[in-house]
């Protein structure tokens, strides 16, 4: 009898848990796009009236500190932490947010990178594990975003660019905040508009950024300004 009761309680709590989770999930989906199409790594994209082209070989970046707001007031904060979004793994684009049922909000904020406290707190696992290749080893700190590929615009020897954007210390703190007004609340669909990013950096001259610097900060601003609500 006792065993039966325990079994029933277990099944009940399992069902409640499942139902609870389903009803409280809001999906944040952040997709890298070029123009009107989702990004495909290695594909050549033409722009500037077909005069210029770019092909990305790597688009990999962190977002963290997700918050939902209602009329500029924070109504929910993500406690799970840090997400590594990688164009090689489409599954990484979707971030389930466990929010209270019936939460009303009309804005989302997040950071495009990793905060300074985490940067000085030693080794972490999961998306922050240094084996993910997003940690500078010769001088410490997370790389907030890696963008690599080729473009005819680059004045490098093989037209390549490698933009490793990061830095957590003054005066080269590259961490940026993103604020977006929302229309839908079931699924928050955000695009990382890479054409906007390329058009707002000096990729012709600054094609290789591998350490914290003023250029890295400027590019990080262009990167964070390239997040837009999907239309």
């Amino acid at each position: 009898m006792k065993k039966c009761l325990a079994g029933l309680i277990l099944i009940f709590s399992f069902v409640t848990n499942i139902r609870g989770q389903n009803s409280n999930i809001c999906l944040l989906k952040v997709t890298p796009v070029f123009g009107s199409t989702n990004l495909t790594l290695g594909k050549q994209y033409f722009f500037h009236n077909q005069k210029d082209s770019v092909a990305f070989e790597m688009v990999k970046y962190y977002i963290s500190g997700i918050q939902l707001l209602l009329n500029s007031e924070i109504v929910w904060k993500d406690t799970s932490g840090f997400y590594l979004l990688d164009a090689e793994n489409e599954k990484s684009y979707s971030i389930p947010l466990k929010i209270p049922e019936n939460l009303i909000f009309n804005e989302i904020n997040f950071l495009s990178g990793i905060d300074s406290t985490t940067n000085v707190s030693g080794a972490f696992g999961g998306d922050l594990d240094p084996t993910n290749g997003m940690y500078w080893t010769w001088q410490n700190g997370y790389i907030n975003g890696k963008f690599e590929g080729k473009s005819n615009l680059c004045k490098s020897m093989d037209s390549s660019f490698e933009l490793h954007l990061g830095g957590y210390q003054f005066p080269y703190n590259a961490l940026q905040s993103v604020q977006l007004k929302l229309t839908s609340k079931k699924i928050i669909e955000v695009h990382l508009e890479l054409e906007h990013f390329i058009n707002n950096i000096d990729i012709a001259e600054k094609h290789h950024i591998m350490s914290p610097s003023n250029e890295a900060v400027l590019m990080s601003k262009a990167f964070s300004n390239s997040f837009k609500i999907a239309q």
């Binding site: 707190s121 240094p130 940690y135 080893t137 010769w138 001088q139 410490n140």
Partner: peptide, 16 residues
């Protein structure tokens, strides 16, 4: 002082 934490120290010589 390039390395800010003992946990991350070993990464530098391993990858250099």
């Amino acid at each position: 002082g390039a390395i800010n934490h003992l946990d991350m120290q070993a990464l530098a010589p391993i990858t250099h």
